[in-house]
């Protein structure tokens, strides 16, 4: 029973099915339990959250990543799988709070910088980070640097992820770092940047800790920074 449920969660992550209403990659799956229902069933059957998270949701997401690497899966598959993981996490959330508050890899504040209204890339990174097990606080678009710093403080964030699509707005990424410095938070929060006009060189120039050229690189950077002592 336990193995079947966990395997069901893995398979539904692979199919990107959040719940029973979702269509999977294969046809004819609508009406069958999705990740949310299976996670609930697993909890009802006494399976602990750690097992569901590691052997079900995370393993499913790892397999999705492998399929992406081999070219079998594409970005939409990754995103829908991440959404399915998020749906499972939502079901687990009350239980996680009871067991180990603040579970997950860490908290990251995400924002598109001031004067910039573009959010496709930022949203993509948000979804993928959630799927990868991060607690994501998404501040949206056109976010002033002070608000980013304020949120990082409030949420005790480990990381800040900044996005910009315009040459004219990317400079505002540096302003966030300056604002962190002013508040003496720079050592406590690591900053990752991304977006079409940005680069590794630009990240170094403004003093960011990491640069993600795409959503997957952003996750790798986040994982690396968390392992090397990033965060508060």
């Amino acid at each position: 029973m336990k193995e079947e449920l966990i395997e069901g969660i893995v398979q539904n992550v692979l199919q990107g099915r959040r719940n029973q209403d979702d269509e999977g990659i294969e046809e004819g799956t609508v009406g069958q339990p999705g990740v949310a229902e299976l996670v609930q069933e697993a909890l009802d059957n006494g399976i602990d959250t750690n097992t569901i998270l590691l052997e079900g949701l995370s393993r499913g997401m790892e397999m999705v990543g492998q399929k992406y690497e081999t070219g079998e899966y594409f970005i939409p598959d990754m995103l829908t799988a991440a959404e399915a993981v998020e749906a499972g996490m939502e079901v687990m959330e009350p239980h996680l709070l009871g067991e180990e508050a603040g579970a997950g890899k860490g908290t990251i504040i995400m924002a598109t910088v001031e004067k910039d209204l573009h959010d496709i890339g930022k949203n993509l990174v948000c979804i993928m980070l959630k799927g990868a097990g991060y607690n994501v606080v998404d501040l949206g678009i056109d976010v002033p640097s002070e608000r980013v710093v304020e949120a990082a403080e409030e949420e005790k964030a480990d990381l800040i992820g900044l996005s910009a699509l315009l040459n004219t707005t990317m400079v505002n990424m540096g302003k966030v770092i300056e604002a962190l410095d002013k508040k003496d938070l720079r050592d406590k929060v690591k900053v990752i940047i991304g977006g079409a006009p940005t680069s590794e060189d630009f990240a170094q120039e403004i003093g960011a800790d990491g640069y993600g050229k795409d959503a997957f690189a952003a996750i790798r950077e986040a994982d690396k920074l968390m392992k090397t002592g990033g965060g508060s």
Binding site: I25, P76, L79, T80, I120
Partner: peptide
Amino acid sequence: PYRMYARYARP
């Protein structure tokens, strides 16, 4: 939440 159509591109 994110108003993305990726899910619908997949089929």
